[in-house]
Amino acid sequence: MRHNIYPPQADDFRIINQVDIINTFSSVVGLFTIMVVAIAGISLVVGGIGIANIMLVSVVERTKEIGIRKAVGATNAAILIQFLAEAVVVSVVGGGMGIGLGVAIAATAANIFKFPLIVSLWSIASGFGLSFVVGLLAGVIPARNAAKLDPIAALRSE
């Protein structure tokens, strides 16, 4: 009864133990992780849309080239593979630049705040894998459009 608090009155003190601190920290880290994943997901969607737009413009700009290739015997599969490969290359190069920038930022932060730099091989591999998948998915429609072009109509286009 040091604080002169009796049952109907509220306590004027708090007791905090290590478990409460760890639980609070875990909640904050969990929310931060969800936020980072959401931002990364939005970035992947935006990047995919950008790659799809680039590839659609590439198909329109290279319509004559596609027509010539088809006229000399290129199959629909060859055209499809060419444009899918281009989309994947664009995506993986962009992913590589993003991974490089991320590692550079992590190294700088580790140097400034004096903590060890830990970049797992798994995170780098998953970054390249996601880049590959985004490029593949974003390139499907433009590649299919290129493969379906009629060679005669493609050669007549200006």
Rank of each mutant, 00 (worst) to 15 (best):
A87R: 02
A104V: 12
G98R: 03
A146D: 04
V88Q: 04
V46D: 11
A125C: 09
I66R: 06
E61G: 08
W122Q: 15
T108R: 04
A85P: 04
G135A: 05
T108G: 15
V36D: 04
L31G: 15
L101Q: 03
G98E: 05
I152Y: 13
F115M: 12
G96A: 11
A85T: 14
I99Q: 02
D12M: 07
M55Q: 03
R62P: 04
A74S: 13
M97I: 15
F32A: 14
I42P: 10
I49C: 05
S131C: 10
G98V: 07
F25N: 11
D150Q: 02
L136D: 10
G50H: 02
I15R: 00
P142A: 12
A77W: 13
D11L: 14
A153F: 05
A154F: 06
A154L: 08
S27C: 09
V90C: 10
S120K: 11
I21S: 08
K64W: 09
N17Y: 10
N4Q: 06
V59H: 02
N145D: 07
V46P: 09
T108A: 13
G129Q: 10
V134R: 03
V134C: 04
A147M: 08
I105Y: 13
V93P: 07
V37G: 07
P151M: 05
V28L: 12
G102H: 06
Q18K: 13
A110Y: 08
V57A: 13
V37E: 11
T75V: 08
G41K: 07
V90N: 09
Q9T: 00
V19C: 06
V57H: 12
V57F: 12
A106I: 09
G50C: 01
E61F: 02
L121T: 14
G127C: 08
M97C: 10
K148M: 14
S131F: 07
I54E: 09
S91P: 09
V29R: 05
V72M: 15
P7A: 03
P142Q: 06
K70T: 10
